[in-house]
Design a protein around this nucleic acid. Structure first.
Ligand SMILES: [Mn+2]
Ligand SMILES: [Mn+2]
Ligand SMILES: [Mn+2]
Ligand SMILES: [Mn+2]
Lengths: 222, 222
DNA sequence: AACTTTATTTAGCCTTACCTAAATCAATTT
DNA sequence: AAATTGATTTAGGTAAGGCTAAATAAAGTT
Protein backbone atom coordinates (compact mmCIF):
# COMPACT_ATOMS: atom_id res chain seq x y z
CA UNK A 1 0.00 0.00 0.00
CA UNK A 2 2.73 2.43 0.92
CA UNK A 3 4.62 3.64 -2.12
CA UNK A 4 8.16 4.77 -1.48
CA UNK A 5 8.66 8.32 -2.58
CA UNK A 6 11.86 9.70 -4.07
CA UNK A 7 13.74 12.59 -2.50
CA UNK A 8 12.52 14.93 -5.24
CA UNK A 9 8.94 13.88 -4.73
CA UNK A 10 9.23 14.43 -0.99
CA UNK A 11 10.64 17.90 -1.56
CA UNK A 12 7.87 18.84 -3.96
CA UNK A 13 5.20 17.68 -1.51
CA UNK A 14 6.82 19.49 1.39
CA UNK A 15 6.97 22.77 -0.50
CA UNK A 16 3.44 22.41 -1.80
CA UNK A 17 2.32 21.88 1.78
CA UNK A 18 4.04 25.04 2.95
CA UNK A 19 2.66 27.11 0.09
CA UNK A 20 -0.90 25.87 0.48
CA UNK A 21 -0.96 25.86 4.27
CA UNK A 22 -3.18 28.92 4.37
CA UNK A 23 -5.41 27.50 1.59
CA UNK A 24 -4.91 28.99 -1.90
CA UNK A 25 -3.31 26.60 -4.40
CA UNK A 26 0.42 26.84 -5.15
CA UNK A 27 1.41 28.22 -8.53
CA UNK A 28 3.89 26.61 -10.88
CA UNK A 29 6.22 29.58 -10.77
CA UNK A 30 6.27 29.96 -7.00
CA UNK A 31 6.99 26.29 -6.60
CA UNK A 32 9.74 26.48 -9.20
CA UNK A 33 11.37 29.34 -7.31
CA UNK A 34 11.21 27.47 -3.98
CA UNK A 35 12.51 24.24 -5.43
CA UNK A 36 15.18 25.98 -7.49
CA UNK A 37 13.98 24.30 -10.61
CA UNK A 38 12.50 25.53 -13.88
CA UNK A 39 8.73 26.02 -14.19
CA UNK A 40 8.59 23.44 -16.97
CA UNK A 41 10.05 20.85 -14.61
CA UNK A 42 7.41 21.67 -12.02
CA UNK A 43 4.62 21.17 -14.51
CA UNK A 44 6.08 17.80 -15.42
CA UNK A 45 6.43 16.62 -11.85
CA UNK A 46 3.00 17.90 -10.83
CA UNK A 47 1.40 16.01 -13.67
CA UNK A 48 3.09 12.86 -12.51
CA UNK A 49 2.05 13.36 -8.90
CA UNK A 50 -1.54 13.97 -10.00
CA UNK A 51 -1.58 10.74 -11.99
CA UNK A 52 -0.24 8.51 -9.23
CA UNK A 53 -2.82 6.29 -7.68
CA UNK A 54 -3.70 7.28 -5.20
CA UNK A 55 -3.10 10.83 -6.43
CA UNK A 56 -0.76 12.90 -4.26
CA UNK A 57 -1.91 16.28 -5.60
CA UNK A 58 -5.02 17.85 -7.03
CA UNK A 59 -4.24 19.65 -10.24
CA UNK A 60 -6.12 21.56 -12.93
CA UNK A 61 -4.14 23.11 -15.74
CA UNK A 62 -3.31 26.76 -15.13
CA UNK A 63 -5.09 26.63 -11.76
CA UNK A 64 -2.24 25.70 -9.46
CA UNK A 65 -1.91 22.64 -7.25
CA UNK A 66 -3.06 21.44 -3.82
CA UNK A 67 -2.38 18.29 -1.83
CA UNK A 68 -4.70 15.32 -1.56
CA UNK A 69 -5.09 13.55 1.78
CA UNK A 70 -2.30 11.14 0.78
CA UNK A 71 -0.07 13.96 -0.38
CA UNK A 72 -0.56 15.83 2.85
CA UNK A 73 0.36 12.80 4.93
CA UNK A 74 3.53 12.34 2.90
CA UNK A 75 4.39 16.02 3.31
CA UNK A 76 3.81 15.93 7.06
CA UNK A 77 6.00 12.87 7.31
CA UNK A 78 8.90 14.77 5.81
CA UNK A 79 8.21 17.87 7.89
CA UNK A 80 8.09 15.80 11.06
CA UNK A 81 11.45 14.28 10.17
CA UNK A 82 12.89 17.70 9.41
CA UNK A 83 11.79 19.34 12.62
CA UNK A 84 12.69 16.45 14.88
CA UNK A 85 16.12 16.33 13.26
CA UNK A 86 16.65 20.04 13.76
CA UNK A 87 15.71 19.77 17.40
CA UNK A 88 18.01 16.85 17.88
CA UNK A 89 20.99 18.36 16.08
CA UNK A 90 20.73 21.47 18.21
CA UNK A 91 20.40 19.55 21.44
CA UNK A 92 22.96 16.81 20.93
CA UNK A 93 25.54 18.26 18.56
CA UNK A 94 25.40 21.93 19.47
CA UNK A 95 24.26 23.20 16.09
CA UNK A 96 22.99 26.78 16.09
CA UNK A 97 19.55 27.55 14.74
CA UNK A 98 20.91 29.02 11.52
CA UNK A 99 23.00 25.92 10.78
CA UNK A 100 20.54 23.09 11.36
CA UNK A 101 18.19 23.67 8.50
CA UNK A 102 20.55 22.74 5.70
CA UNK A 103 21.69 19.56 7.41
CA UNK A 104 18.11 18.48 8.20
CA UNK A 105 17.15 19.20 4.61
CA UNK A 106 19.21 16.21 3.48
CA UNK A 107 18.75 13.89 6.45
CA UNK A 108 14.96 14.17 6.43
CA UNK A 109 14.76 11.92 3.37
CA UNK A 110 16.87 9.02 4.54
CA UNK A 111 16.06 8.29 8.19
CA UNK A 112 13.93 5.28 9.03
CA UNK A 113 10.69 5.32 10.99
CA UNK A 114 12.63 3.58 13.72
CA UNK A 115 15.13 6.43 13.79
CA UNK A 116 12.32 8.97 13.90
CA UNK A 117 10.79 7.22 16.86
CA UNK A 118 14.03 6.93 18.77
CA UNK A 119 14.76 10.62 18.29
CA UNK A 120 11.26 11.65 19.32
CA UNK A 121 11.60 9.49 22.40
CA UNK A 122 15.07 10.78 23.26
CA UNK A 123 13.82 14.35 23.01
CA UNK A 124 10.72 13.69 25.09
CA UNK A 125 8.31 14.18 22.19
CA UNK A 126 8.88 17.90 21.67
CA UNK A 127 6.06 20.06 20.33
CA UNK A 128 8.21 22.62 18.54
CA UNK A 129 11.57 22.73 16.77
CA UNK A 130 14.44 25.18 17.48
CA UNK A 131 12.73 27.84 15.37
CA UNK A 132 9.53 27.41 17.35
CA UNK A 133 7.72 25.68 14.52
CA UNK A 134 5.18 23.01 15.36
CA UNK A 135 6.23 19.39 14.87
CA UNK A 136 3.58 17.16 13.27
CA UNK A 137 2.47 14.37 15.59
CA UNK A 138 3.54 10.74 15.21
CA UNK A 139 0.22 10.00 13.48
CA UNK A 140 0.86 12.85 11.10
CA UNK A 141 -1.46 15.54 12.19
CA UNK A 142 -0.35 19.15 12.34
CA UNK A 143 -1.22 20.75 15.69
CA UNK A 144 -3.14 24.01 15.54
CA UNK A 145 -0.96 27.11 15.60
CA UNK A 146 -2.55 29.84 17.69
CA UNK A 147 0.24 32.38 17.37
CA UNK A 148 -0.09 35.39 15.08
CA UNK A 149 2.38 37.27 12.88
CA UNK A 150 4.38 39.96 14.62
CA UNK A 151 3.19 42.25 11.81
CA UNK A 152 -0.22 42.37 13.49
CA UNK A 153 1.14 43.77 16.76
CA UNK A 154 0.31 47.46 17.36
CA UNK A 155 1.52 50.25 19.61
CA UNK A 156 1.61 49.39 23.30
CA UNK A 157 0.77 45.73 22.75
CA UNK A 158 3.10 43.14 24.26
CA UNK A 159 3.89 39.66 23.14
CA UNK A 160 6.23 36.70 23.30
CA UNK A 161 8.01 35.34 20.26
CA UNK A 162 6.79 31.86 19.40
CA UNK A 163 8.53 31.07 16.15
CA UNK A 164 10.54 32.26 13.19
CA UNK A 165 10.44 30.77 9.68
CA UNK A 166 13.72 29.03 9.27
CA UNK A 167 14.45 29.26 5.58
CA UNK A 168 17.06 32.00 5.57
CA UNK A 169 20.21 31.51 7.66
CA UNK A 170 21.24 35.15 7.29
CA UNK A 171 17.93 36.33 8.67
CA UNK A 172 18.25 33.92 11.59
CA UNK A 173 21.72 35.16 12.47
CA UNK A 174 20.44 38.73 12.22
CA UNK A 175 17.52 38.04 14.51
CA UNK A 176 19.65 36.22 17.01
CA UNK A 177 21.96 39.21 17.15
CA UNK A 178 18.94 41.38 17.95
CA UNK A 179 17.85 38.93 20.63
CA UNK A 180 14.72 38.04 18.68
CA UNK A 181 14.47 34.33 19.43
CA UNK A 182 11.58 32.20 20.69
CA UNK A 183 10.34 32.97 24.22
CA UNK A 184 11.60 36.54 24.11
CA UNK A 185 9.18 39.21 25.38
CA UNK A 186 8.70 42.27 23.24
CA UNK A 187 6.60 45.39 23.24
CA UNK A 188 5.41 47.43 20.27
CA UNK A 189 6.16 51.07 20.79
CA UNK A 190 5.37 52.41 17.36
CA UNK A 191 3.83 51.41 14.05
CA UNK A 192 4.04 53.24 10.76
CA UNK A 193 1.07 52.42 8.53
CA UNK A 194 2.78 53.65 5.36
CA UNK A 195 5.84 51.41 5.25
CA UNK A 196 4.54 48.93 7.84
CA UNK A 197 7.63 49.42 9.95
CA UNK A 198 7.16 48.27 13.50
CA UNK A 199 9.22 49.70 16.35
CA UNK A 200 9.62 47.32 19.25
CA UNK A 201 11.38 47.13 22.54
CA UNK A 202 13.44 44.02 23.28
CA UNK A 203 14.83 44.16 26.78
CA UNK A 204 16.49 47.57 26.94
CA UNK A 205 16.90 47.87 23.20
CA UNK A 206 14.65 49.53 20.63
CA UNK A 207 14.46 48.05 17.12
CA UNK A 208 12.68 48.98 13.93
CA UNK A 209 11.59 46.03 11.82
CA UNK A 210 10.24 46.00 8.26
CA UNK A 211 7.29 43.96 7.07
CA UNK A 212 9.45 41.30 5.44
CA UNK A 213 10.80 40.57 8.91
CA UNK A 214 7.66 41.02 11.02
CA UNK A 215 5.79 38.68 8.70
CA UNK A 216 8.21 35.87 9.41
CA UNK A 217 7.95 36.05 13.19
CA UNK A 218 4.99 34.60 15.07
CA UNK A 219 4.07 35.85 18.52
CA UNK A 220 1.58 35.23 21.24
CA UNK A 221 0.10 38.31 22.87
CA UNK A 222 0.49 38.49 26.60
CA UNK B 1 39.00 20.47 -7.31
CA UNK B 2 36.69 18.28 -5.27
CA UNK B 3 34.08 16.57 -7.43
CA UNK B 4 30.90 15.66 -5.64
CA UNK B 5 30.20 11.98 -5.89
CA UNK B 6 26.76 10.44 -6.22
CA UNK B 7 25.46 7.92 -3.71
CA UNK B 8 25.97 5.09 -6.20
CA UNK B 9 29.52 6.14 -6.86
CA UNK B 10 30.26 6.28 -3.15
CA UNK B 11 28.86 2.80 -2.68
CA UNK B 12 30.92 1.39 -5.53
CA UNK B 13 34.10 2.90 -4.14
CA UNK B 14 33.37 1.68 -0.64
CA UNK B 15 32.82 -1.88 -1.80
CA UNK B 16 35.86 -1.82 -4.05
CA UNK B 17 37.88 -0.69 -1.04
CA UNK B 18 36.63 -3.54 1.09
CA UNK B 19 37.26 -6.11 -1.62
CA UNK B 20 40.76 -4.90 -2.41
CA UNK B 21 41.85 -4.21 1.16
CA UNK B 22 44.12 -7.22 1.18
CA UNK B 23 45.45 -6.34 -2.29
CA UNK B 24 44.09 -8.45 -5.20
CA UNK B 25 41.81 -6.53 -7.57
CA UNK B 26 38.02 -6.84 -7.25
CA UNK B 27 36.21 -8.79 -9.94
CA UNK B 28 33.14 -7.57 -11.78
CA UNK B 29 31.02 -10.43 -10.52
CA UNK B 30 32.00 -10.12 -6.88
CA UNK B 31 31.29 -6.44 -6.96
CA UNK B 32 27.96 -7.04 -8.65
CA UNK B 33 26.99 -9.47 -5.91
CA UNK B 34 27.97 -7.04 -3.13
CA UNK B 35 26.21 -4.11 -4.73
CA UNK B 36 23.15 -6.14 -5.65
CA UNK B 37 23.43 -5.06 -9.23
CA UNK B 38 24.02 -6.89 -12.50
CA UNK B 39 27.59 -7.49 -13.72
CA UNK B 40 26.91 -5.45 -16.86
CA UNK B 41 26.05 -2.46 -14.68
CA UNK B 42 29.31 -2.85 -12.78
CA UNK B 43 31.31 -2.86 -15.99
CA UNK B 44 29.58 0.33 -17.05
CA UNK B 45 30.15 2.13 -13.79
CA UNK B 46 33.76 0.99 -13.53
CA UNK B 47 34.50 2.30 -16.98
CA UNK B 48 33.09 5.65 -15.99
CA UNK B 49 35.07 5.79 -12.76
CA UNK B 50 38.25 4.90 -14.65
CA UNK B 51 37.67 7.73 -17.12
CA UNK B 52 37.04 10.44 -14.56
CA UNK B 53 39.87 12.85 -14.19
CA UNK B 54 41.43 12.30 -11.87
CA UNK B 55 40.61 8.60 -12.23
CA UNK B 56 38.98 6.99 -9.21
CA UNK B 57 39.83 3.42 -10.16
CA UNK B 58 42.50 1.56 -12.08
CA UNK B 59 40.95 -0.76 -14.59
CA UNK B 60 42.09 -3.13 -17.32
CA UNK B 61 39.47 -5.11 -19.19
CA UNK B 62 38.95 -8.57 -17.75
CA UNK B 63 41.56 -7.89 -15.06
CA UNK B 64 39.43 -6.54 -12.24
CA UNK B 65 39.57 -3.14 -10.59
CA UNK B 66 41.56 -1.37 -7.88
CA UNK B 67 41.34 2.09 -6.35
CA UNK B 68 43.57 5.02 -7.25
CA UNK B 69 44.78 7.35 -4.51
CA UNK B 70 41.76 9.59 -5.15
CA UNK B 71 39.38 6.66 -5.15
CA UNK B 72 40.78 5.38 -1.88
CA UNK B 73 40.35 8.75 -0.22
CA UNK B 74 36.76 8.91 -1.37
CA UNK B 75 36.14 5.38 -0.09
CA UNK B 76 37.70 6.12 3.29
CA UNK B 77 35.57 9.24 3.55
CA UNK B 78 32.42 7.15 3.26
CA UNK B 79 33.74 4.47 5.60
CA UNK B 80 34.64 7.08 8.21
CA UNK B 81 31.13 8.48 7.99
CA UNK B 82 29.64 5.03 8.28
CA UNK B 83 31.60 3.96 11.31
CA UNK B 84 31.26 7.24 13.16
CA UNK B 85 27.54 7.14 12.54
CA UNK B 86 27.25 3.59 13.83
CA UNK B 87 29.13 4.49 16.96
CA UNK B 88 26.98 7.50 17.51
CA UNK B 89 23.66 5.77 16.87
CA UNK B 90 24.56 3.09 19.38
CA UNK B 91 25.70 5.56 22.02
CA UNK B 92 23.02 8.21 21.72
CA UNK B 93 19.95 6.41 20.44
CA UNK B 94 20.41 2.98 21.91
CA UNK B 95 20.66 1.07 18.66
CA UNK B 96 21.99 -2.47 18.98
CA UNK B 97 24.96 -3.54 16.92
CA UNK B 98 22.82 -5.55 14.51
CA UNK B 99 20.52 -2.61 13.82
CA UNK B 100 22.94 0.24 13.16
CA UNK B 101 24.45 -0.90 9.92
CA UNK B 102 21.39 -0.43 7.75
CA UNK B 103 20.67 3.05 9.09
CA UNK B 104 24.29 4.16 8.68
CA UNK B 105 24.27 2.76 5.17
CA UNK B 106 21.91 5.55 4.11
CA UNK B 107 23.09 8.36 6.38
CA UNK B 108 26.75 8.00 5.37
CA UNK B 109 26.04 9.64 2.02
CA UNK B 110 24.25 12.76 3.18
CA UNK B 111 26.01 14.12 6.27
CA UNK B 112 28.22 17.18 5.94
CA UNK B 113 31.85 17.41 6.92
CA UNK B 114 30.68 19.66 9.72
CA UNK B 115 28.37 16.93 10.97
CA UNK B 116 31.17 14.39 10.77
CA UNK B 117 33.40 16.60 12.85
CA UNK B 118 30.78 17.31 15.48
CA UNK B 119 30.04 13.62 15.91
CA UNK B 120 33.72 12.70 16.12
CA UNK B 121 34.16 15.41 18.72
CA UNK B 122 31.08 14.38 20.72
CA UNK B 123 32.32 10.79 20.81
CA UNK B 124 35.84 11.74 21.81
CA UNK B 125 37.38 10.69 18.49
CA UNK B 126 36.81 6.95 18.84
CA UNK B 127 39.23 4.53 17.20
CA UNK B 128 36.74 1.73 16.54
CA UNK B 129 33.03 1.37 15.79
CA UNK B 130 30.55 -0.83 17.69
CA UNK B 131 31.70 -3.89 15.71
CA UNK B 132 35.28 -3.17 16.65
CA UNK B 133 36.24 -2.03 13.16
CA UNK B 134 38.82 0.72 12.78
CA UNK B 135 37.58 4.19 11.95
CA UNK B 136 39.62 6.04 9.32
CA UNK B 137 41.25 9.18 10.71
CA UNK B 138 40.02 12.70 9.97
CA UNK B 139 42.72 13.04 7.33
CA UNK B 140 41.53 9.84 5.75
CA UNK B 141 44.15 7.32 6.66
CA UNK B 142 43.21 3.84 7.76
CA UNK B 143 45.01 2.84 10.97
CA UNK B 144 46.91 -0.41 10.89
CA UNK B 145 44.92 -3.41 12.09
CA UNK B 146 47.10 -5.72 14.14
CA UNK B 147 44.40 -8.22 15.06
CA UNK B 148 44.20 -11.59 13.32
CA UNK B 149 41.28 -13.79 12.25
CA UNK B 150 39.92 -16.10 14.90
CA UNK B 151 40.38 -18.86 12.34
CA UNK B 152 44.12 -18.75 13.01
CA UNK B 153 43.76 -19.52 16.73
CA UNK B 154 44.84 -23.04 17.71
CA UNK B 155 44.39 -25.36 20.64
CA UNK B 156 45.28 -23.85 24.02
CA UNK B 157 45.81 -20.37 22.63
CA UNK B 158 43.88 -17.52 24.21
CA UNK B 159 42.70 -14.27 22.75
CA UNK B 160 40.39 -11.30 23.04
CA UNK B 161 37.80 -10.47 20.40
CA UNK B 162 38.64 -7.23 18.63
CA UNK B 163 36.05 -6.99 15.89
CA UNK B 164 33.35 -8.67 13.84
CA UNK B 165 32.46 -7.82 10.24
CA UNK B 166 29.13 -6.11 10.43
CA UNK B 167 27.44 -7.01 7.17
CA UNK B 168 25.01 -9.65 8.36
CA UNK B 169 22.54 -8.72 11.11
CA UNK B 170 21.55 -12.35 11.68
CA UNK B 171 25.15 -13.33 12.32
CA UNK B 172 25.56 -10.43 14.72
CA UNK B 173 22.50 -11.42 16.71
CA UNK B 174 23.77 -15.00 16.78
CA UNK B 175 27.19 -13.97 18.02
CA UNK B 176 25.77 -11.69 20.65
CA UNK B 177 23.66 -14.55 21.93
CA UNK B 178 26.84 -16.61 22.27
CA UNK B 179 28.56 -13.76 24.07
CA UNK B 180 31.00 -13.29 21.23
CA UNK B 181 31.34 -9.52 21.19
CA UNK B 182 34.40 -7.24 21.21
CA UNK B 183 36.58 -7.39 24.36
CA UNK B 184 35.43 -10.88 25.22
CA UNK B 185 38.19 -13.32 26.23
CA UNK B 186 38.18 -16.73 24.64
CA UNK B 187 40.33 -19.83 24.61
CA UNK B 188 40.73 -22.39 21.82
CA UNK B 189 40.26 -25.87 23.18
CA UNK B 190 40.14 -27.81 19.93
CA UNK B 191 40.68 -27.44 16.23
CA UNK B 192 39.63 -29.83 13.50
CA UNK B 193 41.87 -29.45 10.43
CA UNK B 194 39.40 -31.22 8.13
CA UNK B 195 36.34 -29.00 8.47
CA UNK B 196 38.21 -26.09 10.10
CA UNK B 197 35.86 -26.16 13.03
CA UNK B 198 37.23 -24.41 16.07
CA UNK B 199 36.06 -25.27 19.57
CA UNK B 200 36.40 -22.39 22.00
CA UNK B 201 35.58 -21.59 25.56
CA UNK B 202 33.69 -18.37 26.27
CA UNK B 203 33.30 -17.83 29.97
CA UNK B 204 31.86 -21.13 31.19
CA UNK B 205 30.47 -22.11 27.79
CA UNK B 206 31.99 -24.23 25.07
CA UNK B 207 31.16 -23.41 21.44
CA UNK B 208 32.05 -24.94 18.09
CA UNK B 209 32.42 -22.43 15.27
CA UNK B 210 32.75 -23.07 11.53
CA UNK B 211 35.21 -21.34 9.26
CA UNK B 212 32.60 -18.98 7.84
CA UNK B 213 32.21 -17.61 11.35
CA UNK B 214 35.81 -17.72 12.57
CA UNK B 215 36.93 -15.87 9.46
CA UNK B 216 34.69 -12.93 10.30
CA UNK B 217 35.97 -12.44 13.82
CA UNK B 218 39.28 -10.73 14.54
CA UNK B 219 41.14 -11.35 17.79
CA UNK B 220 44.26 -10.30 19.54
CA UNK B 221 46.23 -13.06 21.22
CA UNK B 222 46.90 -12.57 24.87
C1' DA C 1 -12.09 44.15 -29.02
C1' DA C 2 -7.18 43.90 -30.05
C1' DC C 3 -2.73 43.93 -28.20
C1' DT C 4 0.84 43.04 -24.95
C1' DT C 5 2.82 40.84 -21.10
C1' DT C 6 3.31 37.16 -17.95
C1' DA C 7 2.35 32.42 -16.55
C1' DT C 8 2.06 27.89 -17.82
C1' DT C 9 2.41 23.91 -20.64
C1' DT C 10 4.28 21.05 -24.43
C1' DA C 11 7.93 19.04 -27.06
C1' DG C 12 12.24 17.39 -27.57
C1' DC C 13 16.82 16.45 -25.23
C1' DC C 14 20.17 15.12 -21.70
C1' DT C 15 22.35 12.51 -17.80
C1' DT C 16 22.52 8.92 -14.35
C1' DA C 17 22.19 4.43 -13.27
C1' DC C 18 19.99 0.66 -13.82
C1' DC C 19 18.38 -3.69 -16.94
C1' DT C 20 18.42 -7.83 -20.55
C1' DA C 21 20.29 -10.20 -24.40
C1' DA C 22 23.98 -11.05 -27.35
C1' DA C 23 28.90 -11.07 -28.16
C1' DT C 24 33.47 -11.85 -26.74
C1' DC C 25 37.27 -13.22 -23.89
C1' DA C 26 39.89 -16.39 -20.81
C1' DA C 27 40.51 -20.46 -18.58
C1' DT C 28 39.73 -25.35 -18.50
C1' DT C 29 38.95 -29.88 -20.43
C1' DT C 30 39.07 -33.13 -23.63
C1' DA D 1 44.41 -27.82 -30.83
C1' DA D 2 39.54 -27.66 -30.33
C1' DA D 3 35.69 -27.30 -27.59
C1' DT D 4 33.27 -26.03 -23.61
C1' DT D 5 32.28 -23.14 -19.78
C1' DG D 6 32.19 -19.16 -16.98
C1' DA D 7 33.26 -14.30 -16.61
C1' DT D 8 33.03 -10.03 -18.66
C1' DT D 9 31.87 -6.60 -21.96
C1' DT D 10 28.98 -4.46 -25.54
C1' DA D 11 24.68 -2.96 -27.41
C1' DG D 12 20.41 -1.27 -26.96
C1' DG D 13 16.57 -0.04 -23.55
C1' DT D 14 14.05 2.14 -19.59
C1' DA D 15 12.74 5.39 -15.87
C1' DA D 16 13.72 9.62 -13.15
C1' DG D 17 14.21 14.16 -13.09
C1' DG D 18 16.25 17.76 -14.78
C1' DC D 19 16.85 21.50 -19.01
C1' DT D 20 15.76 24.85 -23.19
C1' DA D 21 12.86 26.61 -26.70
C1' DA D 22 8.48 27.05 -28.66
C1' DA D 23 3.50 27.13 -28.11
C1' DT D 24 -0.48 28.43 -25.70
C1' DA D 25 -3.40 30.45 -22.15
C1' DA D 26 -4.68 34.04 -18.97
C1' DA D 27 -4.60 38.64 -17.41
C1' DG D 28 -3.97 43.44 -17.98
C1' DT D 29 -4.01 47.60 -21.21
C1' DT D 30 -5.22 50.54 -24.35
MN1 LIG E 1 15.05 18.10 1.30
MN1 LIG F 1 8.37 9.36 9.72
MN1 LIG G 1 25.46 3.19 1.25
MN1 LIG H 1 33.84 13.18 5.82
Amino acid sequence: MKKLLTISTQDYLKHIYELTEHNAPASTNTLAARLKVRPASVTGMIQKLANEKPALVEYQKHQGVTLTKEGRRAALEVIRHHRLLETWLVQTLGYSWDEVHEEAERLEHVISEDFEQRVAEALGHPLRDPHGELIPTANLEMPLEDATPLSTLRKNQRGTIVSVRDADADLLRYLERLGLIPNTHIEAIDYSPFDHNLTIKVGEQTRVLGLSVTNKILIKED
